[in-house]
Amino acid sequence: MKLSRREFTVGALLAAGTMGLPIMVKAQGTKTVALLFDSLVSPFWVSGIEIMREKAKANGWETLENISDFDDNKQFEQVKAMIGRKVDGILIIQTDSKAVIPAIRAANEAGIPMVHFNRPPAESDAYSVAIQADNRKIMADTVQFLVDEAKKMGGKYKACLLIGDLGDVNAIQRRDGFFDVVDKNADMIEVVARVSTEWNADKAFAGLTNALQANPDINFLVTSSDFMHPQIEQVLQTAGKWHKRGEEGHVLFAGFDGDEGAYARLKDGYLDACGVQNLFLEVDMAFQAFIDMWAGKKPEKLLLDPGFVITQANLTEKQDEMWGYTVWKKQNG
C-alpha cells in the first residue's frame, strides 16, 4: 500500500498525539510537583533530586523537572512554564535570593504553593516556604566537638576556616557558627587563616596551599562544605599533614554537608567530625509543607532542619541518616 505525503503527515501527527495521551491521562487525578533546580553539579544536589523523586513516587505524586544552569531568567521562565502546566506545587532551588521574588509572586498569583529548598529567598511581600538546614547551630555543634577533642589533647591550636561564597546565606551562617565557638576559646585557638573559596574547589586548593605556606603549623581545619575534601586532602598530603586520628601530626579536621567523601574519610579516620544536613528530613519537611498548603494551612516562611553532628563514635548509629552514606553504599556495592 502506498501512502501519499499528506496521509503520512496526518498519520505522524495522530501518532504523536496518541503518544502524548498517556502523559495527559496519567497527569489526571494525582498531584504533580515541579522540581526546579539551578544545577546538579554537586553530589548534594544529585542525591537531593533522587531522594525527591523517590519520596514523591512513594506519595503517589508525579514530578516534572527543570534545571536552570544558574540562569535566573531561565528559572523564572521555568516557573512560568510550570504554572502553565498547572502543577500543584513548585519546589525550587534558586541561584539568587532576590531574583527569585518575581517567580514567587507569579506562583502566588496562580495559587500554586512554592517551597524553596536549602536556600531561603530575600525578604519580600510574596509568600513561600523555605526549608533550610540550621547552618549556624550545626556548624557550632561540629566545631564544639573539635574543640572538645582539642581540649582532651591539650596544647594550642592554629585554625584555618574555608569559607563559602559570602553571597550565599548558608556560607555566612556556617562562618558565624564557627566563630560562635572559636571566639569563646580564643585562649586555646587562634584563627590564622580564613580562605575565601566562593564555593570553588580550585580557589579552595590555592587558598589552603597559600595558608599552609604562611602558617605551616595549622592543626585545626574546618571546611564549610564537604565537596572541597579532595583538594584539602591533596594539600595536606603535600604538606605532610595527612594523618589519621591518633597518629602523630593529625590535623583536627571537620566538614559540613555529609557527602560520600565525608563518610569515607570519617570511616577511614582522617575526618574527626561532620555537620550533616539531613537531606531525607529536609525533603520530608518540604513535601509536608506542600501537603499543609494544599490543606489550606499557612506554614512558617522558614522551617529549619536541626541536622546533626556525625563522628566516629556515632557513625554506625547515624550513618543511615547521612545522605552521603547512601551514595557511598551505591558506589561501593
Binding site: 540562569d71 535566573d72 531568567n73 531561565k74 539568587d96 531574583a99 521574588i101 518575581p102
Partner: peptide
C-alpha cells in the same frame, strides 16, 4: 523582569 541587578545575568545566553 527579575527586579534585581545581578552579575551573572545573561551569562548563559
Amino acid at each position: 523582569r527579575l527586579e534585581t541587578g545581578t552579575p551573572v545575568l545573561g551569562q548563559r545566553i
